[in-house]
Structure formats: C-alpha cells, structure tokens
C-alpha cells in the first residue's frame, strides 16, 4: 500500500482523514452557531421588549443595498460550489477561476457594507456618546443600532477570515495541490463560507425587512 502524499502519518487512509476533517468542520460550525446564538438571543429579547424602537431602527436601513449584498453572497456560495466541482473533475484552471470569483464577490460584499457603515457614521447613527438620539422617538433605538453593528460586524469579521482562507486556497490551487481524490481543504472552507452566508440570510430579514410594511 503506497502512501498518498496528502495522507497524514496518524491516519490509516485518506477516507478516514477526510471523514475526520468533515466531522471537525461541522463541530466547529456548531460552535459558530452557539457564538452567533448569543447575539440572536439578545436580538430576540430586545425586539420582543421594544418593538417600536426596532421598527424605527429598521426603517433607517437601506433595503436596496441589503438585497444587493444578499444576492452577492448567494452568488459567492455558488462560485465556491463550482470550484469544488472543478476540483472533483480535476480541472485546475477552473478551480483558480472560481476561487477568484469567490474572493471578488466577498470583497464586493464588504465594499457595500462599508458604504452602509459610512452612511451611518455620517448621520450619527452609531451608538455611543455621539449618537444622534434627536432623530428618534424611542431611546432604545440606540440599542437596535448597537445590535445591528455587533451582528453585522461579527458577520463581516467572519467574511474577512473567509476571504483570507480563500486567498490561501488560491495559492494552493495555482500550485495544483488539489486532486479529484483529495481536496478536503477546499470542501472545508466551502462549508465555512456557506455558514457565513446562512448567517447573513438570517440577518437580512431580521434587521432590514421585519416590520417594514408598517
């Protein structure tokens, strides 16, 4: 039995190694669910307690930009899947191409987010001593913006980490490190990216959409 170059010394075979990596990644994603769970709990408690303040706050967000970012992220999940698909078929150049697309979409998301943030800074809707509380009827609206920045901020941090991971993968792909039988790294980072994507799928309606018809 010859050893695959990617097989680590402490595993019996590539299958065991891949299964371990997959289970480890899913377990890690569960820790992420618990991490964001704390934020979502805080959101739920205060939304239930201060519905008017939440309504007031969500009307300040730009639905157009939020929807654009949602589309960008869903698109980036697609490009990740396509890169994995390319790896399964051994098409190295396509891996590189789809990874580049993913990184580009990730950066586009961050740019849109930065535009939204800078607008909030501009009009003084950032919690803290300079908060323009005169703009709002309810004092708890500041709490809404606190959670808005905490939740989207933590999400953005995860985006930055993800883009960094894909940059590393891009380097590996250019050195043709991924083969049809072994591309665990690509799949694991893909799982992570889908998770970050799903967090946004929850954030968008909770922060931007709920109650907008009122």
């Amino acid at each position: 039995m010859s050893h695959h170059p990617a097989l680590a010394h402490h595993f019996e075979d590539l299958e065991q190694q891949h299964e371990s990596a997959t289970l480890g990644m899913w377990a890690f994603l569960i820790t992420e669910v618990m991490f964001f769970g704390g934020l979502f709990t805080a959101y739920a408690v205060y939304r239930w307690r201060y519905p008017e303040a939440w309504l007031e706050g969500s009307h300040e967000l730009d639905i157009g930009l939020g929807a654009l970012n949602t589309a960008i992220l869903i698109g980036s999940s697609l490009t990740v899947v396509l890169s994995i698909h390319a790896a399964q078929r051994g098409e190295s150049r396509k891996i590189v191409r789809w990874l580049l697309a993913t990184i580009g979409l990730g950066l586009a998301f961050l740019v849109v987010k930065a535009i939204e943030y800078s607008h909030k800074f501009h009009v003084g809707h950032v919690p803290g001593p300079n908060f323009a509380s005169g703009d709002f009827v309810h004092t708890e609206t500041q709490l809404y913006f606190g959670l808005y920045f905490a939740m989207t901020g933590m999400h953005a941090v995860h985006m930055v980490i993800g883009i960094g991971l894909f940059a590393v993968l891009l380097g590996m792909a250019m050195r043709r490190r991924f083969t049809p039988e072994h591309h665990s790294w690509l799949e694991m980072c893909g799982l992570y990216w889908h998770f970050v994507d799903i967090v946004w799928i929850f954030l968008f309606p909770l922060l931007y959409l709920l109650g907008r018809n009122q």
């Binding site: 919690p127 803290g128 001593p129 500041q142 709490l143 606190g146």
Partner: peptide, 17 residues
C-alpha cells in the same frame, strides 16, 4: 470600549441578560 450598550439599563439594555 465602544458604548454599544447591550447590557446598559440607560439605553434599555438589561444586565440580567
């Protein structure tokens, strides 16, 4: 550090949370 105020009663936050 940033005055986000999730647990700050002045802003409606709840220390019990």
């Amino acid at each position: 550090g940033l005055g986000i105020g999730i647990f700050d009663p002045k802003l409606g936050g709840d220390p019990l949370l």
